[in-house]
């Protein structure tokens, strides 16, 4: 099968929806965080796919490579790659905070199940 933008779109949608499904149905906090990172992965694929051009070179110049405007420019779009870099780092930050909070909650309740974290104890 030839991979073009359309297939990449559909794949990223499928992965995104898998993540959403996991985030909705899971009751375990760690699994919810994993689902969130699955969503982020889908996002990164989607963003890269918006810059992908069939049969193009990566946007890194190497020896003997020329970029001549306007007709022979044969590289994929570098801007979505930059966006993805930022998005990855932001995802890492969010996941780190989430794990910290999860550890703290586990210390309080001794369980990771959301349903067993009762509301009677405080207020």
């Amino acid at each position: 099968m030839m991979i073009d933008n359309r297939t990449l779109y559909i794949y990223s949608f499928i992965i995104f929806l898998i993540g959403i499904y996991g985030a909705i149905t899971n009751r375990n906090l760690i699994k919810i965080l994993v689902s969130l990172s699955i969503i982020e992965t889908a996002l990164n694929i989607f963003l890269v796919s918006t810059g992908y051009i069939n049969g193009s070179n990566p946007p890194i110049l190497h020896s003997g490579m020329k970029l001549i405007s306007p007709n022979s420019i044969n590289i994929s779009d570098p801007l979505p790659h930059a966006l993805v870099l930022t998005a990855i780092v932001i995802g890492v930050g969010t996941t780190a905070i989430g794990i910290g909070l999860t550890i703290k909650l586990y210390n309080h309740y001794k369980t990771l199940n959301v349903n067993r974290m009762g509301d009677k104890d405080e207020l």
Partner: peptide, 26 residues
Amino acid sequence: KLSIKGSLKYLIITSIGASLYLFGIG
């Protein structure tokens, strides 16, 4: 317990929101 639970809820909802926002940007 309450504050940590609240912030975790906020984190989950905002990170889903952020990914939707990025889809829109894409």
